[in-house]
């Protein structure tokens, strides 16, 4: 599995983690009482907090991930040749982590689908409002569709890396 695939897989896993955490939290709150369920400000705050947590987890996770990948490459190089110097290891790390036109093309194609799903979620949210459902439902639909769009983007990236673009 290449560096790009591992990175994408890692993003998917953190995305799933955040979505599941939000799902459990939201479900728990809904169960706890109807008053909270209709409080738009509360849910807006909650979603903002979860977006913040998602960004923080992603940044910290990516840093840890890159450190681990660098260590893995360094160990592999050392096992391959004990006399390998730091410069050679550094070069191997750079070669492994290079991003080129195919990565950009894959990102572009998968992002297109991700945005489509997010957009459809927003439209669904608007339809829900028109049908006189609570704005909280719309808020949840928008949040979930953005998360699902992002996850789909990741899965599509993995697909394109495997099957070609």
């Amino acid at each position: 599995m290449s560096y790009q695939e591992k990175r994408t897989l890692f993003s998917i896993l953190t995305g799933i983690l955040i979505l599941v955490a939000y799902g459990i939290y939201a479900y728990g709150k809904y169960q706890s009482g109807a008053m909270i369920a209709e409080d738009l400000t509360f849910w807006a705050k909650t979603i903002l907090i979860f977006i913040g947590i998602g960004i923080a987890v992603n940044i910290v996770g990516q840093i840890v991930f890159h450190i681990l990948i660098a260590i893995q490459i360094a160990i592999k190089e050392k096992l391959h040749d004990v006399n390998t110097d730091d410069k050679a290891i550094e070069k191997s790390i750079q070669n492994e982590m290079v991003t080129d036109e195919m990565d950009k093309m894959i990102e572009l194609k998968s992002m297109q689908t991700g945005f489509f799903v997010s957009g459809m979620g927003f439209i669904t949210g608007l339809i829900v409002l028109v049908l006189n459902y609570s704005p909280v439902v719309m808020l949840h639909i928008v949040f979930v569709s953005f998360s699902v769009g992002s996850l789909l983007e990741g899965f599509l990236q993995l697909y394109y890396y495997r099957k070609g673009v």
Partner: peptide
């Protein structure tokens, strides 16, 4: 050529 190994693999296999 300034690309990743994965890109060369994909080009060679006709996937990209």
């Amino acid at each position: 050529v300034g690309a990743s190994r994965q890109t060369i693999v994909a080009v060679e296999a006709g996937k990209y």
